[in-house]
């Protein structure tokens, strides 16, 4: 069956979070770029070990939050100033009475920021993605339990089925397996 299927990459399991981190450092130093580690929980320090920077997810959230504030400002100002001016408690709409709109501005800022956080997270992680070649590897289901994995993709320029396999075994990888698409 597997012969005519495209090769996705090579996967290896590691004993512990510590072993995985050392291995990741070595893969990073070997110059690979299209690879990933898979863990049951976020391993702190792994971003550095993989050579990844800080997540830039906060940028879309800032934009989302600003949109929320702007939306609330327009939502409260336009009716109060133009469409439907209302005098409540003898207070007309002017700059001195704007603080009464702060709760709505605050709530919509939070609401829009939260939605941008979740949508940005989904887009940046390319989720939902119900099919992924790594799921073809039977052992991989342990990633959500206690498995620590490295997967190097075949489309990486440095990938070579034999050499990469040897490298993974050398740095302590167990059950090195070819993953098909």
């Amino acid at each position: 069956m597997a012969e005519y299927r495209k090769i996705y990459g090579l996967g290896a399991q590691f004993e512990s979070a510590a072993a995985l981190m050392h291995a990741a450092e070595k893969i990073r130093d070997a110059g690979f770029s299209k690879w990933d580690v898979h863990t049951p929980y976020p391993v702190h320090g792994m971003d550095k070990a993989m050579g990844l920077g800080k997540s830039w997810l906060s940028t879309p959230v800032l934009i989302g939050g600003a949109t929320g504030t702007l939306t609330a400002t327009l939502l409260t100002f336009i009716p109060s100033w133009g469409i439907y001016p209302m005098i409540v408690h003898g207070k007309p709409f002017n700059w001195a009475t704007v603080p009464a709109f702060f709760p709505i501005m605050f709530e919509l800022t939070v609401l829009f920021s939260a939605f941008s956080t979740v949508f940005a997270l989904l887009i940046m992680n390319q989720l939902p993605k119900w099919y992924h070649p790594v799921f073809n590897w039977e052992r991989f289901s342990r990633v959500t339990d206690d498995g620590f994995f490295i997967v190097i993709e075949a489309r990486d320029a440095k990938f070579s089925e034999t050499k990469t396999r040897a490298l993974l075994e050398e740095i302590g990888g167990l059950h090195v397996t070819l993953i098909h698409d």
Binding site: A24, D36, V37, H38, T39, P40, Y41, P42, V43, M46, D47, M50, L52, K54, S55, L57, S58, V61, S113, T117, V118, A120, L121, L122, M124, N125, L127, P128, K129, W130, Y131, H132, V134, F135, F140, V143, T144
Partner: peptide
């Protein structure tokens, strides 16, 4: 959602959770 615990995902996930 097809979560596969990859570190490239966890990186953004942790930031999202913090935010």
């Amino acid at each position: 959602l097809g979560w596969r615990g990859s570190n490239r995902q966890w990186r953004h996930y942790e930031m999202a959770y913090l935010l």
